Simulated assay, not measured.
Amino acid sequence: MIKGDGAQDAVDMLAEARSAQMLSEAESPGWIELVAPAKVNLVLNVGDRLDSGYHRVSTILHALNLHDTVFMRRTAAPEGSGLSVAAEVKGRGGVSVPEIASADNLAAKAVALLARAIGRAEDERVEIRIDKRIPAQAGLGGGSSDAAAALVGACRLWGVDPSSREVRDAACEVGSDVAFFLQGGCAAFAGKGDEFVRSLCASKRPVVLVKPERGVSTVRAYQAFDADPVPADGAVEAAFDEVGSADDVPLFNNLALASEGLEPELSAVRRWLEGRCGAGRALLCGSGSCTFALCESFDEAVAVSVEARKHGWWSRATSLGSLKAAVVR
């Protein structure tokens, strides 16, 4: 949210300075750097509720060029102390970061799960620093992407094959979207959203993201959906099975009405975006609270983003892309 008062500007500058200091420290020898992209669901088709409590899902996800940056290193620990994982997160570009314990961070959980899966118990400390530009509770998959990047980073530090079964199992245990970020680009997933089906040709189309301050509980959104489910039509099901390019996928999210019913501002954001980018070009990201819109040009995406911020909404111009969780340095 854009603030005009000097006090808020000072707070923002202090946060940027602290994050820049963390970035500088993480560029010292011994650290590796990874990219962790955001995502949108071009298609989210929620089906029946399973006995496990999850829902059957068919979805087409697409990576964005908006991304977090993850830094990792391992250092020796006192003899007999075993392996420990610590995560530190700093917000960038106006993104606020919730206060959570390091052990509850998805990236730290992912590394700990992989260590147990491969039987690694050396006396060492794995440090994770996340430079965060993807907002939380937005439906953009930031936490899941950080977890995927942490798994890839741990593989590099430990000499593990990132395509191994242990890595895939750890990804699925952390969360349903984590497996996608190991794949990247554009891909169809089924099951709980964690079973890879096929890849699609990725798009480079410009996108604008708009997120109001209030969010929606994912649990409440699914409860509202169960009370009044919205079935997918034949075109959406055909796209999931047959369409080969992201540019040809019809946008669809049958969870959106449930979320918009819980938080009316989401509906207002979608209508506002459709008024600027065209009918049928805006869609809620998962259960929200971010909505994305496809744009004809990056200049249009930037112009819409600037206007959105004047309404007090968080917004970014970016584009669809082929990124995945990966080591870059």
Rank of each mutant, 00 (worst) to 15 (best):
R270S: 03
A17C: 13
S217Q: 12
D241N: 11
L284Y: 10
L251C: 11
E79D: 08
G175W: 00
L284F: 06
E79Q: 11
E33W: 11
G4Y: 00
A326D: 08
A38D: 04
T69V: 15
E260N: 04
I32P: 10
H55E: 03
Y222R: 09
S267M: 05
F252C: 07
D48K: 13
T318S: 04
V111Q: 04
S84L: 03
H55M: 14
R165T: 05
D131F: 07
G143Y: 14
I100H: 02
S287H: 06
G6L: 15
K90S: 15
H311L: 09
A147F: 06
A326Q: 06
L106S: 06
A7Q: 14
F189G: 03
S84E: 14
E79N: 04
L323D: 02
L23D: 13
Q137F: 08
G286P: 06
R165A: 06
Q8E: 14
N105T: 10
V249D: 08
A235H: 14
V197Q: 12
Q8M: 11
Q137C: 14
P231D: 08
E213D: 12
E265H: 15
S24Q: 13
V207D: 00
G153I: 13
I100P: 01
D51L: 09
C285E: 11
A15W: 11
A7P: 02
V306Q: 11
A121M: 10
S84A: 13
V85F: 05
V230L: 09
I32A: 09
A246V: 07
R74K: 15
A293T: 04
A301R: 01
C295R: 01
E237G: 05
V43R: 09
G82N: 03
P231F: 08
G159M: 14
A293D: 03
A268K: 06
L323K: 05
R73W: 04
L151C: 01
A38S: 13
G47L: 06
V160N: 05
L257N: 03
A279R: 06
P231E: 10
A26N: 14
P206C: 14
A101V: 04
A317I: 01
A86V: 06
A232P: 04
A38Y: 09
P37L: 11
L182E: 00
V160P: 02
L106H: 03
